[in-house]
């Protein structure tokens, strides 16, 4: 009994280094920000928050972030859903190859991705000049809202495909055959059986994509978040959904720049 108790104390001691590092690099900075957000010239209070939510500048930034996250997630999930379903229907060699490729491109984010798009679609990008010459481009610019949504959608697609791919296992082929035998059309099958079965997965993935796009971007760059931390081989478990949710909501960043 005595030795096992000592063992437990020793075990607790092993947790100490982790706790120290975690406090220094995660808890302390967060606590500093949280405490200072409540302090202003007039003492403790919510003055900073009311300032932020009364400021047109911050509200506009917030709204733009929301807009870009929303549209890129929406386009991303539509393309990913179509893609993931078709991936289930092609032969396994093509399927394995494209899934592996999606897995790899999901690491293609952040500054390098922004660069690739600037090089191709920037002011003097090769594609920009080419498309302009053909008169196809109109007034599209990568440095605009549409441009940002385009880049964001690009990095949402592989993530969406990887997360949705396992979900289509749930839509069983014999259901489709049964539905067809009972006289349902393709559309009716998807409307009443397919989509309801997929709904939780679609919703979960959509939330994750939102969170993925909602992360802050480096200043002055049309750039997606630098890291996307997820496990490519895992299906969207509750853990990821929760993490996505927590990352999405407590998030009006501007106030931390109050200084």
């Amino acid at each position: 009994m005595n030795s096992s108790r000592r063992g437990r104390y020793l075990a607790l001691l092993c947790l100490l280094p982790f706790a120290v590092f975690f406090i220094i690099f995660q808890i302390a900075p967060l606590a500093w920000v949280a405490i200072n957000s409540l302090q202003s010239d007039s003492g403790w209070g919510l003055a900073n928050f009311s300032k932020v939510f009364a400021s047109k500048f911050y509200l506009q930034a917030l709204q733009r972030s929301l807009e870009i996250s929303f549209w890129s997630s929406l386009f991303g999930i539509v393309i990913a859903t179509l893609g993931a379903y078709s991936l289930h229907k092609v032969d396994s060699r093509l399927r394995d190859f494209v899934t592996a490729f999606a897995n790899m491109t999901s690491n293609f984010a952040g500054v390098p991705l922004a660069f690739a798009f600037i090089i191709l679609l920037g002011f003097n990008g090769a594609l920009t000049l080419l498309l302009k010459q053909m008169g196809l481009l109109g007034d599209f610019s990568i440095y605009s809202k549409t441009g940002l949504i385009l880049v964001y959608t690009y990095f949402q697609i592989p993530l969406g495909v990887l997360l949705l791919f396992p979900a289509f296992d749930a839509v069983r082929e014999d259901w489709r055959e049964s539905a067809a035998l009972l006289g349902a059309s393709q559309w009716q099958f998807w409307r009443h059986i397919g989509l309801p079965v997929l709904a939780p997965a679609l919703l979960g993935t959509f939330v994750i994509l939102l969170a993925n796009a909602w992360a802050p971007m480096p200043p002055s760059m049309p750039s997606p978040p630098a890291t996307s931390t997820y496990c490519p081989s895992a299906s969207p478990g509750l853990w990821q959904v929760i993490s996505a949710l927590t990352r999405t909501w407590p998030a009006p960043w501007p106030w931390c720049w109050w200084g």
């Binding site: 900075p29 992360a215 720049w257």
Partner: peptide, 16 residues
């Protein structure tokens, strides 16, 4: 371990 997810690097950086 959700904290590093929930707190974006920009926010942490201010404190750091």
């Amino acid at each position: 371990i959700l904290l590093p997810f929930a707190v974006p690097p920009v926010v942490s950086s201010v404190g750091l």
